[in-house]
Simulated scan of single mutants.
Amino acid sequence: MPFFIGILNTEKYINIGILNTDMNLQTLMDMNPWWREKELIEKDYDIEKWKEKKHSWIPKILNEINLKPFALHILLGPRQAGKTTAVKLLIREQLKLRDPKSIFYFNCEALADYKELIDVIETYLEFKADSDIKHALIILDEITLAREWPRAIKFLIDRGKLKNDVVLLTGSSSIAVKGEGELFPGRRGRGKDFILWPLSFRQWLKVLEPNLYKKISPIKNFNELKKKATSAIIWLDKLNKALIKYMTYGGFPLGIDAINGNKEEAKQAYLSWIKTAVLKADRDDLIARQIFKAILERMPSALSWEGIAKQIEIKSPKTVSAYVNLFKTMFALIVLYNVDISKKTIKFGKSKKMHLIDPLLLELLE
């Protein structure tokens, strides 16, 4: 049975000018309180948590999202990287610039499948039309939790129902694992893929040590390396202390929170993310741990699939390759391939280097 039942009741109104209808639109209104008063975004759970943090920041990728229709954007990233908070911050900024009813947010966690997702979007589109909204920003959070979700998006795009809108989908690594983000050929418009990574050391400095950050000039090319590195050496002692803290807590939001709180809680949250992603991909948790261990023992040396296979119970390079590809698509690991500089080509068959995306994962997986 669809999650939303019935049609809009256009005869009922409430004093703030929003249609007062059956449970379907009321559910959407509950997730979009700024339709009533745009100031209510400040009472949003994620925004309040963000404001309460000792160290908070606005992800710079929000400035890179093209909000001119039509666009189908996909925001990816590991769990607990702050994707939901990021889109709420985007909403907060856009409320200063546009009609609040033109911003639609929906968390898809409670949806069973693509049929219910279609019902949700079409309910909003009816409300949008009745509110005389021409262009909308539609944000569908954790969309991968609805089974066969690409069918809903393709169905609505192919019928021209989203042609005047910007659609932003967020999801965990499962979009990348299943390749679902590639199922919209010719349907993305101005849309792009974005990845929300944990903070790099330099980004971490900007948030936690802003005065030190301002003293360290960014190096834009190799020609600047010697000059700027030399000028930064007077801050080496402070940089080393900051780096030790960064290597201890990492750049994930929960890791940064743990600097003044419970590090064990952060570790368990990210360990749960890795285990869940492995099991959802129908892979063996024990083999995954063996492969991670083999990589960590040799990191940062170059590795081959054959070399890793010798250290685990399943002596199959193909199995190792499949697991490492999973780790890449769940954003736990990056692989640096051997490059032939003279030919400007990648040597996929050669040994490659692998690195975890965040220092906190080193402690989790060792």
Rank of each mutant, 00 (worst) to 15 (best):
residue 149 W to H: 15
residue 150 P to F: 01
residue 151 R to S: 09
residue 154 K to L: 06
residue 156 L to A: 03
residue 157 I to S: 13
residue 157 I to F: 05
residue 158 D to A: 10
residue 158 D to K: 14
residue 159 R to V: 00
residue 162 L to H: 11
residue 162 L to Q: 07
residue 165 D to I: 11
residue 167 V to T: 05
residue 168 L to R: 04
residue 174 S to A: 13
residue 176 A to Y: 09
residue 177 V to T: 05
residue 180 E to N: 13
residue 180 E to A: 14
residue 183 L to N: 06
residue 184 F to M: 04
residue 184 F to H: 05
residue 184 F to S: 03
residue 186 G to D: 06
residue 192 K to Y: 03
residue 194 F to R: 02
residue 194 F to Y: 08
residue 195 I to H: 06
residue 195 I to C: 04
residue 198 P to S: 08
residue 198 P to K: 05
residue 203 Q to T: 02
residue 203 Q to K: 05
residue 211 N to R: 06
residue 219 I to Q: 00
residue 222 F to V: 10
residue 223 N to A: 13
residue 229 A to F: 14
residue 231 S to V: 06
residue 233 I to K: 15
residue 238 K to L: 08
residue 238 K to H: 07
residue 240 N to P: 01
residue 243 L to R: 01
residue 244 I to P: 01
residue 245 K to S: 11
residue 248 T to Y: 06
residue 250 G to L: 11
residue 251 G to V: 03
residue 251 G to Y: 07
residue 251 G to L: 04
residue 252 F to I: 04
residue 255 G to Q: 11
residue 260 N to I: 05
residue 261 G to E: 08
residue 270 Y to F: 15
residue 270 Y to P: 10
residue 271 L to F: 13
residue 273 W to V: 15
residue 275 K to I: 14
residue 275 K to C: 00
residue 278 V to H: 09
residue 278 V to R: 11
residue 282 D to G: 07
